[in-house]
Design a protein around this nucleic acid. Structure first.
Lengths: 140, 140
DNA sequence: GCTGAATCGTTCATAGGTGAACTATACAGC
DNA sequence: GCTGTATAGTTCACCTATGAACGATTCAGC
């Protein structure tokens, strides 16, 4: 309706991102994962050690109550365990189980494949251009 | 982690869209609206008449159960009313109230202003380029 | 050592989204 | 006219996300 001069609006950006997300989400669902769960597993894997729920919340850029629920679901799936922190009795440490490590590897494989497939539609130059434009939108 | 050659990944696209959405969402929240609510009001306004919940679901590209809840909230806010359809006793027609029409106008104003502010960071040529790249990603 | 402020995780209410199951109604074909 | 199937909307269970309030700890400063 607006900006007919440029052809770009927020709805387009949102819709494109959402569509891309749903493609990946659907592929991950086959192995019982979601992008939220995979992001948590990846964070734990990259940390190389257990993380408190607060650390997890910081690294995933979300609030603590969200992590409480996400770890509940991951624990229900047997991918993560809550352990007590010997140094701080307030804290709970999220620890990946062996099943969690397997799910993480499989999930990363699926996600990277889906991503490659999606970005294949753009040439290298186009990908660079898109990355630059998105960075400009994100600034500040 | 991957595609270091292009600098683009799905996370970047998702994050950019999400950040832009939150900016608009925050401004709409000031007048008690959200993008979901505004989209429903806009759809009713553009239709120029009452729409069944199924029609609303189709035009908003979401499932019926979502519309049930969204209209519940809009009705709670006094922006929309559920009326009976004289031609089909199964259907309920979502009708904008006068308050809904006011909220729609105000919401559109806020959203367009936020959008203009955001897209100001790009030149006209860049906007066109971005629109084209997004369309390429969306195709199929 | 005690006390008050900060931090940790949980719970709750709210918001937005999905899909499956259900009731009520409409309608085509016999 | 009846019957079976399709459609309309709701409810429910689930997932993801936020923010406020809360009990349990920790810890700085006195």
């Amino acid at each position: 309706m607006n900006d007919s001069a440029t052809g770009l609006d927020l709805a387009t950006l949102l819709h494109t991102a959402q569509a891309a997300e749903q493609v990946v989400e659907a592929k991950l669902a086959v192995v019982g994962l979601s992008m939220a769960k995979l992001a948590a597993l990846r964070t734990l894997a990259e940390a190389g050690e257990s993380l408190s729920l607060t650390q997890l919340a910081e690294r995933l850029s979300c609030v603590k109550s969200n992590i409480t629920q996400l770890v509940d679901r991951l624990e229900g799936d047997g991918l993560v365990e809550r352990r007590t922190d010997p140094n701080d009795r307030r804290a709970r440490l999220a620890t990946m189980t062996e099943a969690g490590r397997q799910a993480w590897k499989e999930g990363v494989r699926i996600q990277e494949e889906a991503e490659r497939e999606l970005l294949q539609r753009l040439t290298t130059a186009e990908s660079k251009a898109l990355a630059g434009l998105l960075a400009k939108l994100r600034r500040r």
